[in-house]
Write a protein that binds this DNA or RNA. Structure first.
Length: 189
DNA sequence: CCGCTGATAATCT
DNA sequence: GATTATCAGCGGA
C-alpha cells in the first residue's frame, strides 16, 4: 500500500480500503464494505482504554485486530488512523480468489453469501484469533490497492451506542454487501 | 422479500 | 451477571 495509507484519519482509511483486495494464502477478494471505530467512539472496543482483547488497536497501524464475537464468529479489523485506538472493521468482500476454497470452508455454493458479512468472510478466508496482531504487509496476508470506486455511507450495523453515526462505507450498488445501504447517498470516487 | 429467534462464550462490570 | 461490531434457519406475506 502507498506510504501513509494506514495513518490517515480513520474515516478516510475506512473509505480508502473500499476497492482494495485482501487475500490470505491467496484466498480472498475485493473489499466492498467497511466500518470505522475509534477511541472517542462509545461503540468502539477501544473506548474504555487498552484491555487484553483490544491490545492490537493500540499497536502500530497496518496490523490486524481480530476478535471473537457472540462466542461463535471471528471479525477482522485493519488497525490505523491518525491517533491510537482506531481500526476499520472489514464487513464484506466480493470474492475474486480461491472460490473453491471458500465454498469448502463455508459449506455453501452461493457466491453472494460467501463473504457478505464480517463473520462469513473470516470463515471463508480461514481467519482466526491466531492472526490477531499480525501485520497485513506480510504472509499470509496480502492487501493491495484497487481502482477508486463510487461509495455509499450509512449507520453502522449491529451496535446500540452511537448508532446514528454514518461511519459505514460500501461500494455503491454492490451485490456482495452484508446488507443494503439506506438510499440515496452515492458519493463519487 | 421481511422479521424473529436460538446458539454460544469471551469480555467487562 | 449483562452485554455483545453475528449468522442460519425458520415462518409469514
Amino acid at each position: 500500500m502507498p506510504p501513509g495509507f494506514y495513518t490517515q484519519p480513520v474515516l478516510d482509511l475506512a473509505r480508502a480500503l473500499i476497492g482494495c483486495t485482501l487475500t490470505i494464502e491467496g484466498v480472498g477478494g475485493m473489499i466492498v464494505e467497511t466500518e470505522a471505530y475509534h477511541a472517542g467512539d462509545p461503540a468502539s472496543h477501544s473506548h474504555a482504554g487498552p484491555t487484553s482483547r483490544n491490545r492490537a488497536m493500540w499497536g502500530p497501524a497496518g496490523y490486524a485486530y481480530i476478535y471473537r464475537i457472540y462466542g461463535i464468529h471471528w471479525c477482522l479489523n485493519v488497525v490505523g488512523g491518525d491517533e491510537p485506538g482506531a481500526a476499520v472493521l472489514i464487513r464484506a468482500l466480493q470474492p475474486t480468489h480461491g472460490l473453491d476454497r471458500m465454498r469448502a470452508r463455508r459449506g455453501i455454493t452461493d457466491e453472494r453469501a460467501l463473504c457478505s458479512g464480517p463473520g462469513k468472510l473470516c470463515q471463508a478466508l480461514g481467519i482466526t484469533g491466531a492472526l490477531d496482531g499480525h501485520t497485513l504487509a506480510a504472509a499470509p496476508f496480502a492487501l493491495t490497492p484497487g481502482e477508486p470506486l463510487p461509495t455509499v455511507t450509512g449507520p453502522r450495523i449491529g451496535i446500540s451506542k452511537a448508532a446514528d453515526e454514518p461511519w459505514r462505507f460500501g461500494v455503491a450498488g454492490s451485490r456482495f454487501l452484508s446488507r443494503p445501504f439506506p438510499p440515496p447517498n452515492v458519493q463519487p470516487a
